[in-house]
């Protein structure tokens, strides 16, 4: 069976011939599109390492069939920075030492970007912690992660205000 889908991945439209409907979005990115920044930690929706944005929403790419996402826009960690300029979430993660081994980090960052877009947590650290709880970090960098999300959110808000002014 050959199935052709179109996906916009990191702002680049692509037509992808899939020889197998079993391919998940995660395995498509990692094994077929050479976008290995997105990580596979559990492959079962239980760790969040594979988090990407699909049509602007954070999801576990391990539990999405690529074929079913025909027409979607996908944003991965590789597409987040604007050229050499890191996204505020990326910068804040470095500054707050919000990772150690770095394996969960792309998922944490994409989840944080999704969280900020959702605009439900506000500046309440407890809401940020809850909303980031779908991303496990075995190294235990949670304190830095929460701080980084809050700071990046403030910066993005300030940038937006500046732009509006």
């Amino acid at each position: 069976m050959s199935l052709s889908i179109t996906l916009t991945v990191n702002a680049v439209p692509r037509t992808i011939a899939l020889d197998d409907p079993r391919v998940t979005l995660l395995d498509l990115l990692r094994e077929r599109l050479d976008l290995t920044g997105t990580k596979k930690g559990c492959d079962r929706g239980q760790c969040g390492a594979c988090t990407v944005l699909v049509d602007g929403r954070r999801v576990n790419s391990c539990l999405a069939l690529a074929v079913s996402l025909d027409g979607a826009e996908v944003l991965t960690i590789e597409g987040l920075a604007e050229g050499e300029v890191p996204h505020p979430v990326q910068a804040a993660f470095i500054e707050h030492d919000a990772f150690q081994c770095g394996f969960c980090t792309p998922g944490q960052i994409m989840s944080a970007v999704g969280l900020i877009r959702e605009a439900q947590a506000g500046d309440d650290p407890e809401r940020v912690r809850e909303a980031m709880s779908g991303n496990l970090c075995r190294c235990g960098a949670y304190k830095g992660i929460t701080e980084a999300v809050l700071e990046a959110q403030r910066r993005l808000a300030a940038d937006a205000e500046e732009k509006a002014a």
Binding site: R30, E31, T36, I77, E78, F99, G102
Partner: peptide
Amino acid sequence: LTRRDGQLKVTGGARYAADNHPPGMLH
């Protein structure tokens, strides 16, 4: 100091073992 590998790790550029894909590779 912040981590020297920080930039790589926040951009997805840090290459872990399973991120490698030599030509002709099988699974």
